[in-house]
Design a protein around this nucleic acid. Structure first.
Lengths: 219, 219, 219, 219
DNA sequence: TATGAATGAGACTTCATTCAT
DNA sequence: TATGAATGAAGTCTCATTCAT
């Protein structure tokens, strides 16, 4: 029996807001930083978009820089972890594994708000070296490491021909990164080269797997 | 008859310098904009680096934005034109043509100061739609058009298998763009995934041409 | 008949604290205002030091200025009254009376927390004219008045030589005020000229009484 | 013969102002800091009083704190040096020397704008320890040292009776400091105890020299 | 009564732009 | 043409004060 008293008291409206504030501010900040860059974003805009006043923002983040760092830290590698987690124990073919990698990368990262971070990092990272390190550790290295293992696995099993793994990994990554950059651009004056990300990824997988296929004509 | 006056006077050093001013300012501005972005670059820095005073800069460019536009206009597509010019009349194999495209892109564009513009455009272009249009017309469309023709040529001749050309072109471009971005990053906290651009490009060509090769099982 | 309710209840701990609140806030404020000045003291610091929240402070004092005025009013002349009260009816020699004045001034005022007010008044009083008037009436005038009578008494009795009383009174006061100022200074970078207030006061009395002694050459 | 060409060209109006600017700003700042304290003085007020705009101030001083430090450094000990310089080689009586000290202190320091610094230092010095050190070295220590020598000279020569020199020096200084503080106060609500500084100083000298006179009645 | 989250006016500081020289 | 002193709009951040709970 569930009595009323067992139900947790709903937190007061004020308390609920207080707890939600940092998240709301981070969301607003992510959107604006991505759209306009760090310098061109005014803290008052962020506050307004989050539905609070300028001063309130400073209750939660001591400075604009701290806000920026929190935005990046909050979103860097957020979805990537789970996306890559169980790929390591994949048992199917290496080709399927590569396809699955691309598929997950898209659904868990490239197609989420976190993708906006790429542009941010490309541009602002020179001014925030600590964040660059975070990004390197949490996003770049794990992705590269995983891809490297996938390639080596496929080569070892004979599914893939022998290629220079170190140079091939960035070639797999590049279209993914470029995809999220292209999607940031204003479509009117600067249309992305493709309007169908999924088709691009499909073609990427197709071209890649063809490119990795061992030479059958060598008896 | 005094014909001496008809002869062009060699410009005095002062005159020469005066005429060189805009160029020196544009060079300084390019370097700084690429390094720090539009907002974080102060006009005084640009002037100082160009060896003139802040006021002088405004004699040549009416505003910071105008300076930026001039920088981009000056450098966008500067080297690309000649790089792509005679590729249209190439007569060798399509594979060689693709290799030649990559080679030229690297020597005439990716490995020149103009490459810094990529980062600039990725980030700032949203606020300068006219520039985006310029870039689109002078860089993106010609490159894509050329690549499209190369692919269609190869497919028509049977050198390449039938692929979705519209999706493949960006896949060829992506590593090139990414390569210049990687080179902008601070190497200490964010090393590029490869330190050997030429090797990357070689692997790109290799993988690509393998991927485009017709299925050998079709006699 | 239930007479218990008629008896005064000993105040509960909460009630007692509640009644003590203003006093605790005033103590905290005094210390902080003295230490940092009016502008550099934040109301939140005062509240925290008094063990309450910022909002609570404003239940007792309508503004920071009101708090400051209350602090000064509360402490100005607090100990001085009793210190000077019965000196008026002193019956001993005028020299002893002067010595007693200095002694009491020190024990009841100069060596109490209220001494910190001197610095406060020196600096902030220009912006709080009402407080200046209070201080004038409660501290300056009574002290001067008393000292004037002491001097006149001594001159009348022949104990002291004829001096310009109006100019002499401030000369007696000056070292006392200066003494409390010196003690406010940070000892590391700005040591007071003497570390022994009692010795200074003793020397003050000695020098003063010698200076007031009638010329011995007048039989 | 003075030809016109020998006359130094009067500096252009702009140049002259440029050179005068720091001084004008320091003067304005001194007045306002003395009047209102560091925190309550707005940089825009200083700029306005100096006849320039807010931004101009920051061409000469990188921050409000730097301005404050410059104000103090500029004025601390400015007039005191020359005032005390040749007193060391005085050859008259020690009594005259003491009187001369007081006279000079008044004309060269107490009655100049630099006197306003005393209040400033009393209050703000806790936040600017380096400045405290400057003041200590340039003002306090030299004055005390000089007075100590005067007293010892008089005692050695028999002009003065044996007193505790270390305690007497501050007793001579105190009325001087207090005098400048009193003059800062608003005369309407807080009149200084004397409106005639010279009379006070005269009485100070008189009382002091009487107080230091050897006991003639001790055969 | 007590709290502490929220506010917003106001301060310091920067920097693109102007203009007298 | 070239300079660089001067400007002032605009941005970040602080903190006294308010008010819903």
């Amino acid at each position: 029996m569930n009595t009323l008293q067992d139900l947790p008291c709903p937190p007061s409206r004020r308390t609920r807001r207080k707890q939600a504030r940092p998240g709301e501010l981070l969301d607003a900040a992510l959107a604006l930083f991505v759209e306009k860059g760090f310098a061109a974003t005014r803290v008052e805009e962020v506050a307004t978009r989050a539905g609070v006043s300028k001063g309130t923002l400073f209750l939660y983040f001591p400075s604009k820089q701290a806000l920026f760092k929190a935005v990046v830290r909050e979103n860097v590698g957020r979805h990537l972890d789970q996306a890559l987690a169980d790929l390591a124990s994949y048992t199917g073919s290496s080709a399927d594994l590569l396809r699955e990698f691309l598929r997950r990368w898209w659904t868990h990262y490239g197609n989420t708000p976190a993708a906006g971070l790429c542009k941010l990092i490309v541009v602002e990272v020179a001014h925030f070296p600590e964040l660059a390190r975070d990004y390197q550790e949490q996003v770049v290295l794990p992705s590269h490491e995983l891809l490297r293992r996938v390639l080596e696995r496929g080569i070892a099993s004979g599914e893939f021909r022998r290629v220079d793994v170190a140079q091939t990994v960035p070639l797999i990554i590049a279209p993914l990164l470029q995809l999220v950059l292209w999607r940031q651009w204003p479509t009117d004056c600067m249309p992305a080269p493709t309007s169908d990300p999924q088709a691009l990824l499909a073609q990427h997988a197709d071209l890649l797997l063809h490119g990795l296929r061992p030479d059958t004509a060598t008896p």
